[in-house]
Design a protein around this nucleic acid. Structure first.
Lengths: 213, 213
DNA sequence: CGCATAGTTGAGCTATTTCAACATCAGTGG
DNA sequence: CCACTGATGTTGAAATAGCTCAACTATGCG
């Protein structure tokens, strides 16, 4: 249960409190491609990602828009679980994953007794709102080149190399894989990045930053 | 302070609690076109809309995407104010408006003492997340015709007539006013709606629903 | 009434999508 | 270790939805 400490929602709680939370959860495994939740499904649980990678996305007429890809110690589905409404989107494992489930009811009980937890949850939700706001900005206001540039920058985190999947990026950026592929070639031609296999190396971060607006 | 009861955040609080909140706020007026907050401004307050109409929006390279238009008894800026970060977007009065300001600090204090208030705030934020999720879906996955159809439907609320501004709709839907105007003509030609001055009357709601996907 | 703002319409343009063919890669089992 | 297979990525050509620019019209406000 060391994992819990890494999750922002629980980070500053006492051992005691973590202990209580630990008793509420159980683990579940999903293979790559398996659906974790779907819209029109009542949110009786929320999820803590223990291992693997999960995409949360919307679909319409065979098209797909990823809302967010979750990795490592992250939680998702918490907002819907809080209100007890239906999930607003799909969640699917894009790698073999392991997930901890927390039942809505027991979490709500805990929430009444631990005001700190409430503050944490609000912080998490505020962060989500912020993220979604910039997602809207990126989707609606930027060109393919800017989208891709800021996407790469956002994955860098100090490193100069990232893992990159053309079709995953496409579904996150609201573009087709063809457009992403072509735009990537443009960035290569500009000498801004290098590509080898499924990795991208950024050669000129400054240029990328300029392109990302 | 009857207004406060109408705001979801405070709806189920006692007179006493409302009294305390009432003491925290002060009123401010904004003329049409005035900026209420801007990005890179620390969120020291959040806002309760008392009268008028406010748009919260992002801009990039002279383009503008409205995140949400607020009316009547609504609050906005609460997430940024909770975390104390910068506002993620602009807010501007699009009608002469009156707004109540609540300071971040005093609200956080209150939040510690009134767990109910925290629960309410979480509910509000969860609703916002849900809204933004469907906004992403609408922006990214729908055609102009579908966007406009679902937009009109969402404003109906049981009525069969709505106020409609072409350019406001355009900025909400991520389209140009020209496209909205043309698409509206298409809906007229299909016999789905009628237009007179700045009002739209829906003649065939079912057809509109089918077009909205 | 006149002016500014908002909406309409047309013509041409362009970024992105679509469709199709091909290339590359990763993983599997022989 | 290699050959096969399905998934993923690339490239080209054509189609298209929506944008831009420009001119014009309607609307509402002082």
């Amino acid at each position: 249960m060391e994992l819990l400490k890494e999750v922002p929602l629980f980070s500053n709680l006492s051992e005691d409190q973590l202990e209580r939370i630990g008793r509420l959860l159980f683990s579940k495994k999903y293979l790559k491609g398996e659906v974790i939740f779907s819209p029109n499904e009542k949110a009786e649980f929320f999820f803590i990602l223990k291992r693997g990678k999960v995409k949360v996305f919307k679909t319409l007429n065979g098209k797909e828009q990823i809302i967010k890809v979750f990795e490592k110690p992250a939680l998702f589905g918490e907002a819907a679980s809080f209100t007890g409404s239906c999930f607003p989107a799909w969640a699917e494992a894009i790698e073999d994953s392991e997930v901890l489930l927390v039942s809505r009811k027991s979490f709500l009980n805990l929430l009444k007794e631990e005001p700190e937890l409430g503050m944490n949850l609000m912080a998490v939700m505020a962060q989500r709102l912020f993220y979604l706001t910039t997602l809207v900005e990126n989707l609606s206001l930027k060109s393919a080149l800017s989208k891709l540039s800021s996407y790469i920058l956002s994955k860098l985190e100090g490193e100069e190399e990232i893992n990159f999947s053309t079709s995953l990026a496409a579904m996150e950026l609201g573009l087709t894989k063809e457009t992403v592929s072509r735009t990537l070639s443009k960035l290569k031609a500009l000498g801004v990045i290098e590509k080898k296999k499924s990795k991208i190396r950024v050669k000129n971060r400054k240029a990328l930053q300029e392109l990302s607006c």
